[in-house]
Design a protein around this nucleic acid. Sequence first.
DNA 1: TATTTTTAATAGTAATACTATTATTTCTTA
DNA 2: TAAGAAATAATAGTATTACTATTAAAAATA
Lengths: 230, 230
Amino acid sequence: MDLQISIQPSQKLALRDPESSPLGRKIIRDGIVLMHRLGYEQFTFKKLAEVVECTEASIYRYFENKHRLLLYFLTWYWNYVEYQAIVSLQNLNDPALKIRKVIEILTVGLPNWSDASGIDKAALHEIVIAESSKAYLTKDVDIINGEQLFKPYKDLCRHISDLFSAYNPSYPYPRTLASTVLEMAQFQPYFMEHLPALTDFGKERDHSKVAAFLENLVFSALQPKTSSEN
Amino acid sequence: MDLQISIQPSQKLALRDPESSPLGRKIIRDGIVLMHRLGYEQFTFKKLAEVVECTEASIYRYFENKHRLLLYFLTWYWNYVEYQAIVSLQNLNDPALKIRKVIEILTVGLPNWSDASGIDKAALHEIVIAESSKAYLTKDVDIINGEQLFKPYKDLCRHISDLFSAYNPSYPYPRTLASTVLEMAQFQPYFMEHLPALTDFGKERDHSKVAAFLENLVFSALQPKTSSEN
DNA sequence: TATTTTTAATAGTAATACTATTATTTCTTA
DNA sequence: TAAGAAATAATAGTATTACTATTAAAAATA
């Protein structure tokens, strides 16, 4: 299944649409691999230019700065996840099953983990895990948010919170729970690998452990309360 | 109550103990205020040197780089929270009450929010909220972790997870739940202020809403399950 | 008082994050 | 198909950042 059509990040993110030229496409593909290898801080446009075999200035014609490039990567990912979630859930009816499926997509990975885009999705997923907080933990959050650049993430959060509300309409914190699940689906695998003392899991690469934790957490929270509790 | 004695970050963090000289103390106090104002990315030692009225090189004699300075700030904060948690909980017996108290300390703030240290704790708390992820979301995590520099945070996580285990010894994810609570106690107030669509709260400054959510989440998760659930 | 030790300032460098200008290629359309 | 226009990329810069080697001054100690 080829689904490039659905994964076009906002026009505002790039100065020129990188998918419209061979150089632009190479900047995205090679950029993902290089940022994954070096990490956001060590990644520079100069180093990317060497890999892409163009000049630094050419990259600046596509992206204002590396923060915008990171946002472009993340937006691509969240659009992809949202699309996959819609496809995977459309023939499910049980609200509980839908919730389980979404948690699986967020942690273990996407069911269709290959297409013709040429994008290294494993690298992209690890960029999302390690760098996505840096997209909004900046003094420019409010400006970036005003440009609607977090819309895909917020839409996905809304989508998940709707699943929670469908399961239990009286639960008072569906969105907060959704953003908690979204964030922890990234942080806990990172903790597992680098700071295992913060988890109950060994230094394993098995993300299904995180899925089990999140399922337990979500279904406990959504369980209608008995009158003895507040 | 004066408790500076207990809040000495690790020796490894600073090249020279900043609390041992007037210049060092000024670097810490002014550094907190400046990093809070500019954010981690825009904060530089040159700008701090202007405020402190010393040279850039003088600051480098205390801290290797600004990442180490951030770690110093965070360590100070987590040591302070751990200390306050111990003091606040020592005369409580009910496990549930202890959990509630810790959540309150993490979200609403510390009970004794003033001492003689001269440190702007409100600014420090906001640095923790906005910047602490940047302490470990770096390619050097494993090196820094090997130097035991995340110990105060891990100790606090362990402390909280012990409270969870005391409340329900059969709960299988006490540490993961503790790190989830610790992270969300910072992220959710940030979301509330900058990305309210990710929460169920308006753009308020009332952190007690976050506390209510976390209490609900924790006590639901820790509730012994009936046999009908997995 | 002389000497050692500590502490800070000077004066740099390499790398980063950009930008203004110029050159080249590609696309129209006459 | 050739000339002009538009798009795209390269050259060559700059200001700032992150740091360091060396020197100077101050403080502590003998």
